[in-house]
Amino acid sequence: MAKYQVLLNKALCKSCEICVELCPKKVFGRDKTGKAEVVNADNCIGCLICEEHCPDFCIEVREK
């Protein structure tokens, strides 16, 4: 069972892909429009790299 929940507010996402590239566990992918989407939620280790580097405040990582 994954320890973390990755919440994504797509309305704020501008498709910069920083989260996709920086996540060490490949949690994020891209949807058809190019916006971020959570593809491997279970891999999340709660390092917060995505949250702190998202320029648009789309991501929140929560401990379950």
């Binding site: 507010n9 704020l12 501008k14 920083i18 702190e52 580097h53 998202c54 929140e60």
Partner: peptide
């Protein structure tokens, strides 16, 4: 959005900055 941000933001996002702009960081 995490509470730490909600506490200090004015609730008027999205901001004007381009995709990948460092200002948000």
């Amino acid at each position: 959005m995490r509470e730490v941000y909600q506490k200090i933001f004015r609730d008027n996002l999205p901001h004007i900055w381009c995709a990948g702009c460092g200002n948000g960081i």
